[in-house]
Nucleic acid binder design. Structure first.
Lengths: 265, 265
DNA sequence: CGACACCTTGAAGAGGTTCAAGAAATGTGG
DNA sequence: CCACATTTCTTGAACCTCTTCAAGGTGTCG
């Protein structure tokens, strides 16, 4: 299958993390469980590869605490002081920028294993909001601790650089999408990308639940919610997907891929 | 003057660097001149602030060589191995992503003091092209050298993080522009942003030369070259700018700002 | 169960694109 | 240095995609 060139999925996880693995489902209370990256089955997504046992033990120190974020509430808001990066353990977020004039742009949707808060580094305060679209839990990683450890563990240093670079490349993809694609192409790319990212996490990849509203999809893709709705309906009519409310099933991946890759001009 | 919320200018240089300062114009041959950041008057743009004399001396080691890039040629291309970041000394670049299907998106225009190549970090190869739009010279900074020094000099470490974060935030601004603005608003934001960045470098800020074609502007802003041309003509008719070919003079900044900030919906 | 948010669909309209042609500037080779 | 080719830019007219406005339907949560 040809890779969607657009909103990039995390590049690393070659072997998908299975969120449904037994260790994850067993009734361990995450509140009382020792916070330890070395035990976390999202490790391959969050943490650098190729570190020694000793280094891994030190990396455990990075996560100061965990934090639960209820659906509809913010993890951080634009303007707030920046202190930490956040690794998503469970749940689903959107990030969006707001302008005084009321304009609003969703800049991304983030899921388990992804890192948010990078926008805050440059000026020590956040420049966008992070909103949980379902109940979520994040690992709080104080940025100065990351810095200290990165100075000692070069694999971590490089990992931080890669995470930020990956976000830059992802945004290039979004710019391509917004700048050069038509509505159908954007939405097809979006659906395929979501599926790929879920698949990389051990989920179905073809059967997915949209955690966001049509309006949020529209904001992200630069189109109105009516156009999102209409285009989804059209895809369903054409037999490419099955959509009932927020439950979406991808029926014809190759054709969706073709829609993405077809040059309109 | 209200700040354009969009493609962010470099956040740091509070006191503009004057490229026309005497030291810069004197007939020092940059070829033979010792490569030394500590002497460079773009220092405030490229290098961290608040480092000691000794540290600054070590930072000089970062720039391995300089490299001239003729107009129309590439500094790097998508797919090439990534080894170095580049600090622009003189000249003007565009970066753009290309997809097999022929799609093409300009992701940014870069000028003196700005850093390019960040996209290459994540997978050790570049994912976009950097093309000189006028004869240019860049400082070549091997990334592994940066890493080594950053582990010793925490100001440099933080500086690297800030540069990458700034790029992420800038791209958020572009996403807002592409996702939620109409043609006139995009172009007004673009012109003001260019002016601001030139002003921060000691140039006029209201009198500028467009180094790129209408088509390149259009690609960046997600519109066709004809629309760029028409919209510029309209701005000129309305007395907001004066434009002859690539020479643009901003005549009415407040009104352009109003166009950017007006919420269309 | 009722209020509210979310979603779908239709019809009209606007903004931007496409196609086309000509003008202006730039670069090249004699 | 001029003539010619090429690239870049401008402008018009028709067209099309997406938006806007509107109304009704569906799902969800307290």
């Amino acid at each position: 299958m040809k890779e969607t060139p657009l909103p990039a999925q995390p590049a690393q996880p070659e072997q998908p993390i299975n969120l449904l693995a037994a260790s994850h489902l067993q009734a361990v209370n995450p509140q009382t469980m020792k916070v330890a990256c070395s035990n976390c089955n999202l490790r391959e997504l969050c943490m650098p590869v190729g570190v020694t046992r000793q280094e891994m033990a030190r990396l455990d120190e990075i996560v100061a605490t965990r934090r639960k974020v209820k659906r509809g509430t913010t993890l951080f808001r634009s303007g707030e002081a920046f202190r930490s990066l956040f690794a998503i353990r469970t749940g689903f977020f959107k990030t969006c920028v707001n302008v005084e004039d009321g304009r609003n742009q969703v800049t991304g949707f983030q899921m388990a294993g992804e890192i948010i808060g990078l926008d805050g580094i440059v000026n020590d305060h956040h420049t966008c909001d992070a909103v949980a679209l379902e109940d979520a839990e994040v690992c709080v990683m104080p940025f100065d601790r990351i810095g200290e450890l990165a100075r000692e563990i070069s694999a971590l240093q490089h990992h931080v650089h890669r995470i930020m670079s990956r976000e830059i490349v992802r945004e290039h993809g979004v710019m391509l999408l917004l700048g050069s694609m038509r509505a159908e192409e954007r939405l097809a790319a979006f659906v395929l990308n979501l599926g790929q990212r879920l698949y990389a996490r051990g989920f179905s990849g073809s059967e997915l639940v949209l955690r966001m509203t049509r309006e949020e999809i529209g904001s992200y893709l630069g189109m109105k919610l009516e156009t999102v709705s209409r285009t989804l309906s059209k895809f369903a009519d054409d037999g490419l997907i099955d959509i009932r409310q927020r439950h979406l099933r991808i029926l014809n991946t190759p054709e969706l891929q073709r829609i993405v890759n077809q040059q309109s001009a």
